[in-house]
């Protein structure tokens, strides 16, 4: 496997729900080991984009290659190399942390050092179902799983939501330790920006801005100023004949 093949290569990526374009005209490259931050207001298409990149949502238009492969034809191979952490945590509520890890490992067909992993995320003494866990504990468990899987492309949808400062620090550390490329969707522009190299800003399904992650905050401010000036988003902007 050549190391220079982009992990993500999206051209003119579009997804429509009914009559609404949730994501439109997105061109995106992610290189191996690169860390990308996706920011944008609620409903701007960030999560839809992430789900398409995770092969969980079929694309309506455009082309997408993951690891240089077609995600439909080589679905199994592509999926083997990526992982996603979402708000829906993908674990079984009736199982304990230990059970969930062992189930996951057996599904992946891999051996796993469960006690060590549990100790790492400070869940070694919790034998009860995760139904009773706090948001922070669930998130730590999800990230422990992600670390164990060590995918070539890890995607995280709002990894900091509902976490207290200590939980955020935990998650930050675990994201830093991930070996492959990472894509983070987050509203916590500064916190997530520090973990990333590059950022893109989504607005109403379109990629409005792309640049170094260090400028993500400026872009976020600029787009809000822009909205105030033109009366709301690119739709308003085009109606007014484009931004001044």
């Amino acid at each position: 496997m050549s190391s220079s093949t982009p992990v993500v290569q999206a051209r003119d990526l579009c997804r429509r729900f009914g009559r609404r374009w949730a994501v439109a005209r997105v061109d995106l490259d992610v290189q191996p080991g690169e860390r990308l931050l996706i920011i944008g207001a609620n409903g701007s298409g960030k999560s839809t984009l992430l789900n398409m990149l995770a092969t969980l949502l079929p694309i309506t238009r455009g082309s997408l290659r993951l690891f240089g492969r077609d995600p439909v034809q080589d679905r199994a191979e592509v999926r083997r190399r990526l992982a996603i952490v979402r708000h829906a945590h993908g674990m079984y509520e009736d199982l304990s942390a230990r059970d969930n890890l062992s189930v996951r490992a057996s599904l992946l067909g891999r051996r796993i050092d469960i006690p060590r992993l549990l100790e790492q995320v400070r869940l070694e003494d919790r034998g009860d179902p995760i139904r009773a866990y706090s948001a922070g504990m669930r998130k730590r468990l999800q990230l422990a799983m992600l670390q164990f899987e060590a995918p070539d492309l890890a995607m995280l949808d709002e990894p900091f939501s509902a976490l207290d400062p200590a939980g955020c620090a935990d998650v930050e550390g675990m994201i830093r330790a991930l070996p492959g490329a990472v894509i983070i969707v987050s509203h916590q522009v500064e916190r997530a920006g520090k973990l990333c190299d590059r950022a893109i800003l989504m607005e109403q399904g379109l990629m409005r801005w792309s640049g170094p992650a260090s400028q993500a905050w400026e872009a976020w401010r600029a787009v809000q100023r822009d909205d105030v000036r033109t009366g709301g988003g690119p739709a308003g902007a085009t109606a007014a004949g484009g931004a001044p």
């Binding site: 969980l56 199994a76 996603i84 708000h87 945590h89 993908g90 079984y92 067909g109």
Partner: peptide
């Protein structure tokens, strides 16, 4: 049990 917390998607992503 599969749909409740998005476990089905997780299941689809494992090989």
């Amino acid at each position: 049990n599969e749909v409740e917390s998005g476990a089905l998607e997780g299941l689809l992503l494992v090989p």
